[in-house]
């Protein structure tokens, strides 16, 4: 298409509030690499903004994707499609990805696409650029050069004790580097965000012994315990 690339680069896709501090918007047609401890979570969070605005998301080569986590971070499951493609050849991936770029706004590339040949990858990226689709890679793919890299490091879970509690939320440092960014942007986010209603509840002393429950899981009191630990961490 004539000049579509220049038009597409002027357009952006929305970003959810979790990442809004470091990344006001994602340019259509760009490639984003999500690396570090929470790569999958960050990739899903990136897809959530466009998904809530009506875009379709396809997850290629990530058969282990947590669907519940995707829904939890804001991806609309009615507009989510997956192609596991574990035994695909390079050519089959090339054809599949070309079809995905034509029809979807957000394409998440998982581990099974890692072995893509660089010629195929360049063709797909050029197509995504003219079509205005965003490619998000989970981890650094050798053949796919990224315009933007979002690195999540120093993940600190709170809520988990030594034989008690339950993981409740994590704090992590997010660093965004990009080709067109003069300086790397850094921020610390808490994810998922713990509602304030919990914080105002009375704090219960942590139970040191492992809690043995018959058929029930960590319910009721454990939430307060978790938050006690969480508060202790942030202080």
């Amino acid at each position: 298409m004539l000049g579509a690339a220049s038009l597409a680069s002027a357009r952006t896709l929305p970003v959810v509030s979790l990442l809004a501090g470091v990344l006001p918007a994602v340019q259509q047609g760009s490639t984003v690499a999500c690396t570090g401890q929470a790569a999958v979570g960050v990739a899903l969070a990136l897809a959530a903004g466009p998904s809530q605005a009506g875009s379709w998301t396809v997850v290629a080569g990530q058969p282990t994707l947590g669907i519940h986590a995707a829904a939890d971070v804001g991806v609309d499951l009615a507009r989510l499609v997956a192609v596991p493609g574990e035994s695909f050849t390079d050519q089959r991936w090339g054809e599949s990805l070309a079809a995905m770029v034509d029809g979807f706004d957000v394409i998440i590339l998982g581990g099974a696409v890692r072995s893509l040949r660089s010629t195929t990858a360049r063709r797909i990226q050029a197509r995504a650029q003219s079509r205005g689709a965003v490619l998000i890679t989970i981890g650094q793919h050798a053949s796919i050069g990224a315009d933007l890299q979002i690195d999540s490091a120093a993940v600190r879970w709170s809520g988990l004790g030594d034989g008690h509690g339950v993981a409740l939320t994590r704090q992590m440092d997010i660093e965004v580097r990009g080709r067109r960014m003069p300086r790397a942007q850094r921020t610390t986010v808490q994810w998922p965000v713990v509602r304030l209603a919990y914080a105002s509840e009375p704090v219960v002393q942590p139970v040191v012994q492992p809690v043995v429950q018959s058929a029930g899981g960590p319910v009721g009191g454990s939430v307060a315990i978790d938050h006690d630990v969480a508060l202790g961490q942030s202080a």
Binding site: I67, A167, D226
Partner: peptide, 8 residues
């Protein structure tokens, strides 16, 4: 309870 896992 707590956040659902991203890799299942």
């Amino acid at each position: 309870s707590g956040p659902p896992p991203t890799v299942v």
